[in-house]
Design a protein around this nucleic acid. Structure first.
Length: 501
RNA sequence: GUUCCGGUAGCUCAGUAGGAUAGAGCAACAGCCUCCUAAGCUGUAGGUCGUGGGUUCGAUUCCCUCCCGGAACGCCA
């Protein structure tokens, strides 16, 4: 059909010619032409069974790929300011970044997961002042949270801890340094704990402050000036980002002498480059999309290529409760947190939910529905498939069957639903490659559902623990292969594969 | 006004190197447990793939118009 245009011929006619010119192949039993021009190959079914032995010998390495070619990739995600708890948007980013990292690792990339800690900017000052206000309030002093301050309950907790550790000392002297330091430390610990409970662990927490302390921001500024990428205008220093595709030049040093956030960001990405990464992936919220051209331009200026930085944009999650939208705002402290979600429906259900949706889906999360339906959540469908397989093996042990996995020809598995399952198993390596290459991690989740569905169908139609030993071992071999792949795929999206449910 | 996303079943979403009858979960309806876990299975119903054009043998998919929703357009981060 693809050739129809160039050959100016009817697809059916071309198909006939192709079929006529095919050579004999022992695997192919029959070839048919179908309207409007498809060629269907009917393959000797014994071929499909070889995947079982493959999986049983490779175990969880089945599907490991080489398309990464050991390229070193840095994936930066979450990077939430340590000024409060992680909210739903961060949760989506955390699930996405972690899943992407796991899939890319499986496909042969060397992946570093990184969290950029904004511990150097103005928000941190506001954090310190917010703690100070809460601290004073604990002594009955009427102190107001600053305008851009933070109202979350975790700020109160820090203030309380400060009171317990230092008494009223900071009523007499300035406590901002302590509040800042302790605030960042404690909030960051909280973020790590929540992420850990969500199955997300980072390789590197990179401090913005350290960039200043190591002089990397200044060095980057000097470098950009020396390379002629800057100019002065109305008292400010501009970066010629238009030279690399941005729509206008951007200020890096304000007329009051302060740096804009762009400068440390460029310094940070320069630092990543200096650590030898071939590819930098940033997962950012949808509200940052306008920032991409200038960041890319900056990276070009410090030695990166056009495709060195890949920015994957995460669309916002709209959270509904009582039919109304809840606005995400860390300042107000009203946001639904990752911790709230985990407590309500469990980490597995939340991870499955986020892993199911493509990054650029604008998601609606109805909390009432999510909690109410937690027992009907699709994650249990997949987990149940794994638990069911395990229960068959438990039963086999109870019956004291000696289980020997089959390594040669399968002659007792000729069932339509078995072929469906074999077909799905065979797809796994290609799926990993595709998901890793396109970063479409949600395809893995769809695959999991598909595999689980085929397993459930077969389970209902086909007894595994039959009397005849050979047949039984063939069936158990198939089950074990499904179990291995299912567990591995669940691992990729950060979901547990339970033995019992 | 410009840029980036999205608009597919009642709801939440899959489905792009253009292909056969557009799928899943939830919700609805009808069945299935003396048998390895019914958190399951089988079946039914539900669609002008936002609109209007174009390219093509063929368009949910590619191009253009318009409509609706979200986001961004700062010497804020």
């Amino acid at each position: 059909m693809t050739l129809a245009k160039t050959l100016r011929k009817n697809p059916m006619a071309i198909g006939e010619e192709i079929i006529a010119s095919l050579e004999e192949n022992p695997i192919v039993e029959n070839v048919e032409l179908a309207r409007p021009g498809f060629i269907n190959f009917f393959v000797d079914k014994s071929v499909f069974f070889t995947v079982i032995s493959e999986i049983l010998s490779q175990k969880e390495k089945f599907g490991d790929g080489t398309i990464g070619e050991d390229r070193r990739v840095n994936i930066e995600f979450v990077s939430a300011n340590p000024t409060g708890s992680l909210h739903v948007g961060h949760a989506r980013g955390a699930a996405a970044g972690d899943t992407m990292a796991r899939i890319m690792k499986k496909a042969g990339f060397e992946v570093t997961k990184e969290f950029y800690v904004n511990d150097g900017g103005k928000q941190i000052e506001n954090l310190a002042k917010s703690v100070e206000a809460r601290y004073k309030q604990l002594f009955g002093i009427d102190a107001a949270i600053p305008e851009d301050g933070y109202h979350g309950r975790e700020i109160r907790a820090i203030a309380q801890a400060m009171k317990e550790a230092h008494g009223d000392r900071f009523l007499k002297e300035d406590g901002l340094d302590t509040f800042r330091e302790e605030g960042v430390k404690r909030l960051l610990e909280g973020l790590k704990e929540d992420l850990f409970a969500f199955g997300v662990e980072f390789d590197v927490f990179f401090s913005e402050k350290s960039l200043y302390e190591e002089g990397e921001v200044e060095k980057t500024l000097e470098f950009l000036q020396n390379e002629g990428h800057t100019y002065k205008h109305e008292g400010a220093l501009f970066l010629k980002t238009t030279a690399f595709g941005d729509e206008k030049d951007r200020v890096v040093v304000k007329s009051d002498g302060h740096y804009t956030y762009l400068l440390p960001d460029i310094a940070y990405h320069k630092n990543k480059l200096s650590r030898g990464f071939d590819l930098l992936i940033d997962i950012l919220g949808g509200d940052h999309h306008g920032y991409i051209p200038r960041l890319k331009a900056g990276i070009r200026m410090v030695g990166g290529e056009d495709d060195t930085l890949e920015v994957d944009i995460l669309q916002m999650v709209k959270v509904l409760q009582d039919g109304k939208e809840i606005k995400m705002s860390k300042r107000s402290g009203k946001a639904i947190t990752l911790r709230d979600l985990i407590d309500a429906v469990g980490s597995d259900a939340v991870r499955y939910f986020f892993a199911k949706h493509s990054l650029n889906t604008h998601m609606d999360l109805d909390l009432d529905l999510a909690i109410k339906q937690s027992n009907d959540n699709p994650v249990y469908y997949a987990q149940y498939a794994h638990a069911r397989i395990m229960s068959v093996f438990r039963k086999a042990q109870e019956e004291q069957y000696d289980i020997e996995f089959v390594n040669d020809e399968f002659t007792h598995l000729d069932h339509e639903k078995v072929y469906d399952l074999l077909d799905a198993l065979s797809e796994y390596p290609a799926l990993i490659e595709d998901a890793a290459k396109t970063r479409n991690f949600h395809k893995v989740t769809n695959y999991i559902h598909d595999l689980a569905q085929k397993l459930h169908t077969l389970y209902s139609a086909f007894p595994f623990l039959v009397d005849k030993k050979r047949a039984r071992n063939e069936r158990l071999s198939l089950l074990e292969a499904v179990r291995i792949v299912l567990k591995d795929a669940l691992r990729l999206i950060g979901v547990d594969a339970p033995e019992k449910m």
